[in-house]
Design a binder for these strands. Structure first.
Lengths: 346, 346
DNA sequence: CCCCACGCCGTAAACGTTTACAGCAGATCA
DNA sequence: TGATCTGCTGTAAACGTTTACGGCGTGGGG
């Protein structure tokens, strides 16, 4: 692994200056003869351009960071799947960060924006703290947030409408005759947790159903946590006939527990998840789930960022992706699979 | 987004030289008073070190690339989930490449190793061509291959034992009384495709079952392709009583088709997947699958690479991860999943 | 009292590019 | 023939760090 050739090596061998080498390598107008000599030398030496040096001079790295809260969550992976090809097509590499929803790690990522190792950042924070907002305001490269930020925050963001999403799900359960609808949520100090909790309360109120604290269980957005939360909930309120889960992982945990306890889904208890991940369609029974458009959000975020990188420095933009309810067996029974779309969620 | 401060800016404000600033920032021995002045200036200016410039000088980027064949395949994501934290703990960032199994793209990634943008590479190619081997031999940074490479190739590699894996599955199906066991494979010019096809043939022979070309169907490693392949197979050979699928995505496609055609799983047709992804455990019915240890392989690869980066330049290493059969409902029937879970398995 | 050792510090070179600028040869024109 | 232009090319500076080296002031030993 000896030191590779540089443009200086090539210049010597081709008998030209490093400037000429650089010009040839970058396709700038050059005499044919020079081009030939440089190309020949470069080929013989197996030259590969040092991208670090180039970045230092050109102030661009062609790298973009994507910071997700949890690599294990398929919702983020769905975003990743869309982001990757969009950026690749535009000539950018993707640098991945998994912050495990730790605020300090996220701040760290934001901080590292200043290191100039990437040209831009897409971030999907679970919590948005004052520290986040401060760093965002001071960011030295374009950032797109996937998720909601306080009004007035000067940053592009792509948000889901989980409020309408929860509403769709609760209405669906109500229409199926369910009246003891419980909610299994993630932490309330997270953006989605807070939004979904509030939406649940609102939806019940609008349907004239009482809000019962006993029917609300807080856990976390993981499958194991979902199992734990649902077990606790069922012990406290065995009479529930529907579970509104704040994401698919929690819902899968719910299915685990219900199966263990011998409760039939959906006959005894209907279950709804959120995010409509691959796991929902594949689960057993298949899981009715509110799609919050993870894929669309990822794609939109990547496109917004590319706009900025092209030089757009206009007002911050906001894109909202409407939710959609994918109805499957866990509420409608076996064999039932199709989806309802609700247009123009606020 | 004005230009940020550099060590020169700090040096001026603190009234010292840039060398001193650098020393303080790197924690090299310095007079207390100087440290104080530099720190104060850096804080006031909101200085962040330019990592590109640092990399140019230090010849390290603290970045590692992971090139996977398909971001959409949960098997690679399982690797990613293990690789990410290992590298993060060692202070490396992860740069992601999705090559979509296109050979040219993979060669490109290998080539870009020379650009010095990363300190090392983990790659999981589906095909290993001569071009791959050439580039590997010439690589200017450590590489670890997840998958099999020809004997004698001088590169660290972590391989699955899909031969034994297929054997486990076929034996299992045989033990369940299945005798018309078909294989739905991916392309034969891929490393896993070739290995699994050969292993299937061997396993049948060892069990004294005839090898019937009609029972072998070639498709590709995606769900949609799996559906297509299985539909074709069933049309040609409706009498099959078991499907050995070369990965979980194909197997999910198989379940789709069987359900559409009203064939019961596993009563009429038993189905086995490979890779034992999250989708297998979550599918409907849950999918018996051969675990090839994706997670373990990812972890091992990351650890091998870190060894090399620490300076180990000994002989190429090889790690082989043993397969394991995860038995679920798609072969053993519904009750099985339940009892497995109670024993705390899976 | 002189010299040396030692601890800090500043100067300058280096990493490998890109690019502004000036120089130079040949062609064109008056 | 001399001036001007055109098309290439080379020199050198710059990007922001790290670091080898030598200088300088202080304190201690002879």
């Amino acid at each position: 692994m000896a030191d590779g050739p540089t443009i200086t090596t090539i210049a010597e061998r081709a008998g030209v200056s490093i400037a000429s080498v650089s010009r040839v390598l970058n396709g700038l107008p050059t005499r044919q003869e020079t081009v030939r000599k440089v190309m020949a030398a470069a080929d013989e030496l197996g030259y590969v351009r040092n991208a670090v040096a180039r970045s230092l001079k050109s102030r661009r790295t062609n790298q973009i960071a994507f910071a997700m809260a949890d690599v294990g969550n398929p919702a983020y992976l769905a975003m990743l799947r869309e982001i990757q090809p969009v950026l690749k097509a535009a000539g950018y590499r993707l640098v991945l960060h998994s912050t495990d929803a730790v605020v300090a790690d996220e701040i760290d990522v934001l901080h590292s924006l200043g290191e100039r190792y990437v040209d831009g950042l897409i971030m999907s924070p679970l919590r948005v703290t004052d520290a986040h907002l401060e760093m965002l305001a001071a960011a030295r490269a374009p950032v797109v947030i996937i998720g909601s930020v306080p009004d007035g925050t000067r940053v592009d963001n792509v948000r889901a409408d989980s409020r309408t999403g929860v509403r769709l799900a609760i209405d669906h359960l109500y229409a199926l005759g369910r009246r003891r609808i419980a909610m299994v949520n993630g932490p309330l100090d997270t953006v989605p947790g807070a939004a979904r909790g509030a939406a649940y309360r609102e939806a019940l109120a609008d349907l004239g159903l009482p809000y019962d604290e006993n029917l609300v269980q807080i856990g976390d957005f993981y499958r194991a946590e979902g199992r734990r939360a649902v077990a606790e909930l069922l012990a406290r309120a065995p009479e529930v006939d529907a579970l509104m889960c704040a994401n698919d992982l929690i819902a899968l945990g719910a299915l685990d527990v219900l199966r263990e306890q011998g409760r039939r889904v959906p006959e005894d208890v209907a279950v709804v998840g959120m995010d409509d991940t691959d796991l929902a369609a594949a689960s057993w029974p298949s899981l009715t789930s509110v799609s919050l458009g993870s894929a669309e959000r990822g794609k939109a975020a990547a496109e917004l960022l590319l706009e900025r990188l092209k030089g757009d420095d206009g007002e911050p933009k906001r894109v909202t992706v409407p939710p959609r309810l994918a109805i499957r067996a866990s509420t409608a029974g076996p064999g039932y699979e199709h989806s309802l779309r609700k247009e123009g969620g606020a």
